[in-house]
């Protein structure tokens, strides 16, 4: 019994000693987590072999780890290996969608590295052509963050072609076309939306857009014809019907409410009689 308590005492002593070493080490090495431990990780393909068939599990573990790691606010250097880490995770389990989304999110919003975010999402699209969320997400980044509307339209179009994609994506496309300045294309999409609308609310919203776009497009067309007229004849036309008579316009459009557009022959400007939102 005496030896037993002696052993216990020595045991406790050495445990304290090991604690001391551990704590000092942590201080010496700095914050235990500030080391970039993935600097040395091999690529996903290698890990796939090493994981002995448990690559899904390995991907899960890495993914969980990455979330813990990248959701802390620390120094900027922690984003240095982001691409490698998510590449590895998605190599391990190419059909695991979350890492693409979260990886892209972290790269884009935290690391401000959109090029890599798109690269990751592209990889996801290659591996998972049936997942509409990937191109949709990419489209969002292009639309909201980069204001690269053509790119956004490309991605949204891609998403909309995939089965199961929510029909709302058409509205995004229409909106993106509008922001890009292509009102005609935008109108076309809104008309489609209107035709296929499943409820009154959508019908109303799309009608409003169509209404506004129609007026805006008409005004543009009219204004263009007027300006053309001015160039050719050296003066503004006396009325809108003069444009048709002299072959500058095929016909005079009316606004969606059936009212005529107003024309001021002194300033050469057309305007809508009805209220619409795309006045600028």
């Amino acid at each position: 019994m005496r030896t037993r308590s002696l052993i216990l005492l020595i045991l406790a002593l050495f445990f304290c000693l090991s604690l001391f070493f551990q704590l000092t080490l942590e201080r010496a090495r700095g914050e235990a987590l500030s080391r970039p431990p993935f600097l040395y990780l091999p690529t996903g393909r290698y890990i796939k072999v090493l994981s002995l068939g448990y690559q899904n599990l390995a991907a899960d573990i890495l993914y969980l780890w990455s979330i813990q790691r990248y959701s802390r606010y620390e120094g900027e250097h922690r984003f240095r290996y982001l691409e490698h880490v998510y590449d590895m995770i998605t190599d391990l389990d190419p059909h695991y969608i979350d890492p693409y989304l979260i990886g892209a999110l972290t790269m884009a919003r935290e690391g401000s590295d959109y090029e890599r975010a798109f690269k990751l999402l592209q990889k996801g699209m290659r591996n998972n052509p049936d997942e509409w969320i990937l191109p949709l997400d990419a489209g969002f980044y292009a639309l909201m963050d980069l204001k690269d509307y053509s790119k956004a339209i490309d991605y949204f179009m891609r998403a909309s072609k995939i089965e199961g994609c929510p029909p709302e994506v058409d509205r995004l496309i229409a909106g993106a076309f509008l922001r890009k300045g292509d009102k005609v294309a935008s109108l076309k999409f809104w008309l489609d939306i209107y035709d296929s609308a499943s409820n009154e609310r959508i019908k109303e919203v799309s009608y409003n857009h169509i209404y506004d776009l129609k007026i805006a497009i008409d005004l543009e067309v009219l204004q263009k014809a007027i300006n053309h007229y001015k160039e050719k004849k050296g003066k503004f036309p006396t009325s809108l019907s003069a444009l048709v008579r002299e072959g500058f316009l095929k016909g005079i459009p009316v606004d969606p409410d059936g009212k005529n557009y107003e024309y001021d022959r002194n300033s050469g400007k057309v305007s809508a009689a009805s209220e619409y939102r795309l006045r600028h």
Partner: peptide, 22 residues
């Protein structure tokens, strides 16, 4: 760092060996 790690390794294994002895 190296010396601390060695110290840690030795003292921790002593703990485990003593536990095994018990």
């Amino acid at each position: 760092t190296v010396l601390l790690a060695i110290g840690y390794g030795i003292s921790y294994s002593v703990v485990i060996i003593l536990l095994a002895t018990l």
